[in-house]
Amino acid sequence: MPTNPAVDPARPILRGVSPRDAERPAREVLTAVPWDGARRRDTLPAAAFLAAIRG
């Protein structure tokens, strides 16, 4: 059994991120991860947010 599997040079070093996130600062990307496992709350739709702050 090989212990040094061949590296696929075409395999990207960074996977599973959008092109936009790939260009965001690393600290921003990593601090946004819900590390304790809590799901991120969905952002309020803008209309609901405006309605909320206007009472």
Binding site: I13, G16, V17
Partner: peptide, 28 residues
């Protein structure tokens, strides 16, 4: 070796790393 980063499950609070050709693996 070569370390790769997979953030596909980051919304679940986990990342996956892979190390190809790790220097710490000399033999099976």
């Amino acid at each position: 070796g070569v370390v790769t980063f997979d953030l596909a499950e980051s919304a679940r609070g986990v990342l996956r790393l892979e190390v190809e050709s790790s220097a710490l693996v000399a033999r099976p």
